[in-house]
Simulated assay, not measured.
Amino acid sequence: MSDSQSKKPGYAEIASHYRTLIADGTLAPGDEMPSMSKVCETFKVSITTANRAYKQLKSEGLTVPKPGVGTVVADQPRVATTASARLDRIARTGKPYAKKEVSTEHTAQLRSMADPILADQLNVELHDEVIVRTRTFVRDGKRTVFAVSCIHMRALGDVPELLSPEPFDRFWQEIYTARTGRAVTKAPERRSARLAYDYELQALQVDVEPGTPVPVLVLVNTFSDEDGPLEVWEDVYAPGLWQVDNG
């Protein structure tokens, strides 16, 4: 057996394993985590390594001690996942949503591109017509993210369903690739903050007077094929939420 085959995982790898199970919903809030002895048996590691892995998960707020039970998966009412993590989860599990998550108020329409930043990212002229799809993510009854997809018009010929507000049963770019043979790649996710627009606050049900300045976290993902930018996906987070990379 080679050294790479016999090498035991470190605490960070073990923590990553359980982090992924929690992110995918395999381990849901309130579920009991495996005992330390079970972790040692599964990964063939010492109790010290297992303990360090569990301490890491606890420090990230993913698990909590429960008297008489042991360690359980924590509830995370103020956590929302990133778009990148959401796509990673879909690739791993096929699940479009996290545990207790749904999306609502889906819209799809042709609109004039009025945002100069998004126009530049999509490589279109200001006021050019683009496909705009919106939806609001809700987790455990709380609105977390208002998502906007601005899609280049050249995608419409191959995926006319983009103008239907109904959500796809899989990521629409997979359909595009299947029909065109063109691979779609994602640029690194960009993160910034700005003041929310009134319509975003309405979608997130933030109860403030119109015009009240409310800072929000914004994540932007750009997808391209061989002809250039294809989609710009903007996620606007509800105020007070933590953003994490777990799907």
Rank of each mutant, 00 (worst) to 15 (best):
T81H: 11
T134V: 10
K55V: 04
T136R: 04
K38H: 11
A119K: 05
Y54G: 05
K55A: 14
P29R: 00
Q173I: 11
F223Q: 08
A114L: 14
P215G: 07
E60L: 10
D227C: 00
D225K: 00
R135K: 11
Y18I: 02
M153P: 01
R170T: 15
R182Y: 07
R154Q: 03
S112E: 15
I131Y: 00
T82I: 03
R182K: 15
S37H: 12
R89F: 04
E174G: 09
N246S: 10
E189Q: 13
D3G: 06
H152A: 15
H106Y: 14
V216R: 08
T107M: 04
E234H: 01
T63F: 00
F137K: 14
S16Y: 02
Q173R: 09
M33D: 09
V232F: 07
A74H: 04
E125N: 11
V208F: 09
V159F: 00
K142S: 11
A83L: 14
E129S: 08
D245Q: 09
V39H: 01
V124R: 01
K55M: 10
T180K: 06
H106V: 04
V206N: 06
A119S: 12
M33K: 07
S192P: 02
E125F: 02
V148C: 10
G70T: 09
K142A: 13
F168Y: 11
H152E: 06
V216A: 12
Q76G: 13
L195T: 14
I90V: 15
P96E: 04
A203C: 00
A119L: 05
Q173K: 07
V145S: 02
K142C: 06
E174I: 11
K44E: 13
R194V: 10
N123P: 02
D140Y: 04
K99C: 13
R19W: 00
L241V: 10
S46P: 05
P160I: 09
A196T: 07
G247F: 04
G68M: 10
Q56D: 12
L57S: 05
A178N: 13
P65W: 03
R154G: 02
V69N: 03
G70R: 05
H106M: 00
C150F: 14
A114W: 05
N221M: 13
W242G: 06
T144G: 14
R78I: 10
P29N: 02
Y18N: 01
I175S: 09
R182F: 08
M36R: 15
T82L: 05
G30R: 02
I47H: 14
V132N: 03
L163G: 09
Q205V: 06
S149L: 12
D75S: 11
T71I: 15
V72I: 15
L62G: 03
T136C: 11
K100V: 03
D140C: 01
D245W: 01
L163S: 08
P160Y: 04
Y54I: 09
V72F: 01
S6Q: 14
P239T: 03
Y11D: 12
P65F: 02
E13K: 07
L118I: 15
R191K: 11
V148K: 12
G30A: 00
D24M: 01
D169A: 13
A187N: 09
S59Q: 11
A108P: 10
Q173F: 08
I131H: 01
V214E: 06
R92S: 11
P77W: 07
L195W: 04
Y54K: 10
T212I: 07
K38N: 14
S59L: 05
E129R: 10
K100G: 04
V72E: 04
E209I: 14
F43T: 03
L217E: 13
G61D: 06
